[in-house]
Design a protein around this nucleic acid. Sequence first.
DNA 1: ACATTATGTTAAGTATACATTACATTATGT
DNA 2: ACATAATGTAATGTATACTTAACATAATGT
Lengths: 67, 67
Amino acid sequence: MLKNRVKELRARFSYTQGVLGEKVGVTRQTIGFIEKGEFSPSITLSLKLAHVLECKVDELFWLEEEE
Amino acid sequence: MLKNRVKELRARFSYTQGVLGEKVGVTRQTIGFIEKGEFSPSITLSLKLAHVLECKVDELFWLEEEE
DNA sequence: ACATTATGTTAAGTATACATTACATTATGT
DNA sequence: ACATAATGTAATGTATACTTAACATAATGT
């Protein structure tokens, strides 16, 4: 199962979903879906998010065992 | 533009495209397309590839300026 | 030379990432 | 209390990741 720290890091920079979306080229809804874990973004978008949030992709996203 | 080191690391482990595909749950064609840079895989698949190829996602994939 | 395995590539179909629009709810500030 | 900004969420549409099947060529081993 895919987990992420987008919401946490976005808050650290005080970016709204809309602002973060603009910075990486997607809509605020897309950011919302990613934060909720509703889909697995492309590596291209993931790299952009990691860049803007100043971290490594591996620190932003990781896989956890299911239940 | 998205670049990657999949082919290079796959060779290092002497995996065929088919074997690598099996290990991460996709077909050999998908591995071939990724190596050619024909599409941007999901972060889920990227994490699995990095795990099997024993590296970080950021070392496997990166963005470069155009043309 | 032959068989076998790995790779390149193309076409057509399915699944899903992401956009757009819209409306409701929850902050935040005055 | 009111206005405004931020978020949740759902419906429908489009782009693209990924599959399946097929055939061709290159590489490797006997």
